[in-house]
Simulated assay, not measured.
Amino acid sequence: MMDKATRNMTKVNSMTARIFLTHLRLSVLAITTIAFLSACATTTPQGPAYPRTQDQPYSNGSTDIDRPQDRPDEPDTPEDTDTDLAQNGLTPAFMDGKSIKRIALILPFSARSKRLREEAASMLKSAEMALFDANDDDLLLIALDSAGTPQGAALSAHQARDQGADIILGPILATSVTAASEAVQESGIPVIAFSTDSAVSGGNVFLLSFPPEAEVKRITQFAASSGAQSFAFLGPNSNYGRRVLSAYKDEITNLGARLNGVESYRGKTIDSMQDPAEKLSKLYVDALDENDPKHVAFQAVLLPEGGTALRSLAPLLTYFDDSLRNVQFMGTGLWHKDEVVKEPALNGGIFAGPDLDARKNFNASYDAKYAQEPSR
């Protein structure tokens, strides 16, 4: 194992995250997938075209809403407009005559969740930033609103297809990814989604995300390559926790190592964590052999928590017995927070995730352009 006395928080880059792509993950993959070298023209995010009755207001995707009877007279739309769009794709006037490559970006701009709306806005800004920096006048980014629902994602995917998209980036949520991919499956348009649920990949769907299975595999392999052959788990009994534990068991088996201790808890309070942590500590202490320092129940323990819950959980093992300071603490991408790096109980811990320095550089560029930090 590495010398824990001479290092602070050590982070292992995930195989799926060697380059920092958190907010445009998307642009880099889109460019390489379609062989674009790019700057872009960007369309205004368009809301899904929900069917409406005469009594429902029209919405143009902005805050202005007007009813049909209040709309001024408009010239008739030429009958061949839809045909031209289908044949030639969306073509802004200033790009007329260019060999346009169209990238549709489907994100939940009008989702009910404030967090999702903020994430969508931040990802759009990041996409624009990355594509403008690449400097290609033939690339068009078409931003479409999924509204955070499968129905909205399907409608946006149809819009992307009708506007001639060569590739679709997004959506984020697994159910929306499935709906969007099914909507364009016959068209053969590749969908590069941001979901971490590997179950939605396959066919025309590819995932550009950091799934916990990949993080668990990378961190377990790293610990094993550093000498660990016996492992333990202390984490939440939640969908995420069970998913991580399943991947952890599989990788330990693949490595020919041993999983000697598993403890789970429900909730995020210290009270819910204390009993499982004490049991795992006792397992470690009971296995100690003064005549054989190498005889331990486990050499590394995975703590798949984040935020305040992790800062509550991390000190518990050494609280019950100081000898657990010799155990390698490991984490998932949930550890990727500045406050975690500064947590004394996690000094020497390792986790799989994007490079912190790369994120700082990205944040600096983003802040210089938009005077704010990107969302995570």
Rank of each mutant, 00 (worst) to 15 (best):
K217D: 14
R218C: 13
I219E: 04
I219Y: 04
I219N: 02
F222T: 15
A223K: 05
S226F: 14
A228G: 10
Q229H: 14
S230W: 07
F231S: 06
F231L: 11
A232T: 06
A232E: 05
F233W: 11
F233C: 08
L234G: 03
G235M: 10
P236E: 14
S238F: 11
N239H: 10
N239E: 15
N239V: 11
R242Y: 10
R242K: 11
V244C: 07
V244K: 03
L245P: 10
S246F: 11
A247T: 04
A247C: 09
D250N: 14
E251Y: 03
I252P: 02
I252Q: 00
I252C: 02
I252G: 01
N254Q: 13
A257W: 04
R258L: 12
R258F: 14
L259R: 05
N260W: 04
N260R: 09
N260Y: 03
G261T: 10
G261L: 08
V262D: 07
R266Q: 13
G267H: 12
T269W: 10
I270V: 12
I270D: 11
D271V: 12
S272M: 11
S272F: 09
M273D: 02
Q274R: 15
Q274L: 13
D275M: 11
P276T: 09
A277C: 11
E278I: 04
K279N: 12
K279L: 11
L280S: 00
S281E: 07
S281M: 08
S281I: 06
K282N: 13
V285K: 07
V285D: 05
V285E: 05
L288D: 07
D289G: 04
N291I: 03
N291R: 09
N291F: 07
D292H: 08
D292N: 15
P293I: 07
P293T: 06
P293L: 06
P293M: 07
K294D: 15
K294Q: 12
H295L: 13
V296Q: 06
A297F: 04
F298V: 04
F298G: 01
F298L: 04
Q299S: 01
A300W: 00
L302A: 00
L302N: 02
L303R: 01
L303S: 01
P304F: 01
E305Y: 00
G307C: 04
G307E: 04
G307L: 03
R311D: 02
S312M: 07
L313K: 02
L313T: 01
P315H: 03
P315N: 05
L317N: 00
T318D: 02
Y319V: 03
F320T: 01
F320V: 02
F320P: 00
D321C: 03
D322E: 15
S323W: 06
S323Y: 05
L324N: 01
N326G: 05
V327K: 00
V327G: 01
Q328N: 09
